[in-house]
Nucleic acid binder design. Structure first.
Length: 218
DNA sequence: ACCCAGGGTCATA
DNA sequence: TATGACCATGGG
């Protein structure tokens, strides 16, 4: 356990406050958002989700029943709409296979966590970040989520080289932090919040709360 | 007119 | 294992 990794969380929490993630009303909305936000600005995802809600299509059954072209049109603002149509339907088909289509939280009982993660990764369009986001934010399971902001920030802070695999970065966090689902939830959300504002590919370290400990800022 | 976003798949070497 | 092409809308 390296206290520095927890201290960074504390700094972010002090600066930004609790994030109350995931921004979504139901586990199914969280899962849908996890797919729609792949390499896509969250604002565009919100538009797509609003359209799904307006069409009363934000449920596993409804989404499975939609024609691909209809679904693609509904999620158009989120980009990659043909790809994401296939991915959303694949995820719903998997939920149905596990008997969790009408109540997605039942997925948590389908298998132990490591096996459940493997099954999610076997679904077309579900990679490591998407799987872990579903596990943590839709199913409340203890999994640390790694994304591009996480890698970029901790590389700039000098805590990563930058060329580590996803699994290596995830292992570093779980090794350096106490095992706490609420902490994992808050930490990832805070990293994304910071990342959107300051830790872009082209650094915007104006009023970044981590400037004191970030070499990039100086 | 650029750059970028809370990735993932597939073909190829 | 590790690159590269591809997917597409919308805000800054």
């Amino acid at each position: 356990m390296n206290p520095a990794w927890l201290h960074i969380h504390d700094r972010l929490l002090a600066a930004f406050g609790p994030q109350h993630w995931w921004p979504g009303d139901t586990p199914f909305e969280v899962m849908t958002g996890a797919v729609l936000t792949q390499n896509t600005a969250w604002g565009n995802v919100e538009k797509a989700i609003a359209r799904l809600k307006a069409a009363n299509a934000l449920s596993g059954r409804a989404l499975l029943d939609l024609e691909p072209a209809t679904l693609a049109d509904l999620i158009r603002p989120a980009g990659y709409f043909n790809v994401k149509t296939r991915r959303l339907k694949a995820l719903c088909a998997y939920l149905e296979q596990e008997g969790a289509l009408d109540d997605p939280v039942l997925l948590a009982q389908a298998a132990p966590l490591p096996e459940l993660r493997r099954r999610l990764l076997a679904v077309n369009g579900v990679g490591e970040e998407t799987a872990d986001s579903i596990l943590l934010y839709a199913l409340d399971l203890q999994v640390f989520v790694v994304d591009a902001y996480t890698r970029r920030l901790f590389t700039r802070l000098g805590r990563l080289r930058g060329d580590e695999r996803y699994s290596e970065i995830q292992a570093a966090f779980t090794a350096h932090l106490p095992p706490d689902r609420a902490l994992y939830n808050e930490y990832h959300a805070l990293i994304v919040h910071l990342g959107k504002e300051f830790c872009r590919p082209r650094p915007r370290c104006g009023a970044c709360p981590l400037n004191a400990q970030c070499p990039v800022a100086g």
